[in-house]
Design a protein around this nucleic acid. Structure first.
Lengths: 186, 186
DNA sequence: CCTCGAAACTTGTCAGTGGCAAGATTGCGC
DNA sequence: GCGCAATCTTGCCACTGACAAGTTTCGAGG
């Protein structure tokens, strides 16, 4: 794996981010420990500081990467609002670690420029899906419709991740989400 | 105020819960510190242990209280799904501290019996609102409709609390929520 | 009214954490 | 091959949650 040489790890920044994703999947973003990440990467406890400043710095990077990844995911479901919603939920489940960080702004620096642009990219991808919706003659309110679509997808994803949904929903987030999202798009 | 006598605070349990709600509003449930609560209540750092065992114990109590409060709130919007949704969002904003704990099961004991019954009470209140919906002749799928309604209300509330919504949504969660929720109920 | 057991609270301690400071090591531009 | 900056380490401090053991108070039963 080309790891573990003394001093100058070589790719510590990336290794720490990967370790962070693992750790977040295991214990959640709130219980993330920088020292644990350092141990996982085989470096001293203060090594992460040099690359990210502090914990919020590391999580800011993860959140920005997450928003970028989400933007790509949404763009792939080009202009099909239902599929975009399904993709949103699928993203939350598949990339749970990213998702859980992204919507916990108290854990990172929400005013970080890179993060803001990534966030805006994701928002634009969402709105473009809504704008393409057939309005059936009635005048559309894209802002409101986008907000409704975002809300229902985000709510479903959040409830799913929190384990708040009853068992009878099934174990396929994509299928369950599709059934629920259809209530909005038709 | 009947506070601050030596030993035998008299109402420490309640005082700690109140302090916890304050603290959560200030720093979030993740950053809650038992020792800080003890300081706020004017007792020693180990006093909370006696009443709640550990931090998860205290948060379990808060979560259960929160679900009870939510159940009452939803029941008050009797069988009007739109109003129930608005009430849900309003609850999240008004009782932010409760709401933020309730949907962070990793912070408390999700298998606590009292909590489970309170949670079920809230779920029943929600479904009753959905069951009362006029179906317009079509056969209803109450489970799916309830899930859709819950998702959109929960998603909007969560996004609002996370500060993820654009400014143009306005500053009244009730009005903004009503506009969005109408997209589902009509 | 008094006693004594249990409940309520305190003091002390330990391991773990984040963050800072100061030092050691290494690679890289010149 | 020299020096300097980037990278990483060691050491430290304050804070936290949890536990153990001791102290004070309450209140039930005599």
């Amino acid at each position: 794996m080309a790891e573990s040489r003394a001093y100058h790890h070589g790719d510590l920044r990336r290794a720490l981010l990967a370790a962070a994703l693992d750790a977040i999947r295991e214990v959640g973003p709130g219980a993330l420990s920088l020292r644990d990440l350092a141990r996982r990467a085989g470096v001293s406890h203060a090594a992460p500081t040099h690359h990210f400043g502090d914990k919020a710095g590391l999580l800011t990077t993860l959140a920005a990467q997450g928003f970028d990844l989400l933007a790509q995911t949404l763009a792939a479901a080009n202009d099909d609002l239902l599929e975009a919603g399904v993709a949103y939920v699928d993203f939350a489940v598949t990339h749970r670690a990213y998702f859980e960080v992204m919507f916990r702004p108290e854990l990172y620096r929400a005013d970080d420029p890179e993060l803001l642009t990534a966030r805006e990219r994701a928002g634009a991808a969402l709105r473009s899906g809504v704008a393409a919706l057939p309005t059936g003659g009635a005048p559309a309110d894209t802002d409101r419709d986008a907000l409704a679509a975002w809300s229902i997808a985000h709510g479903f994803a959040t409830l799913w991740l929190a384990g708040a949904l009853p068992h009878r929903v099934g174990d396929s987030p994509r299928e369950a989400a599709r059934a629920v999202l259809r209530r909005l798009t038709t």
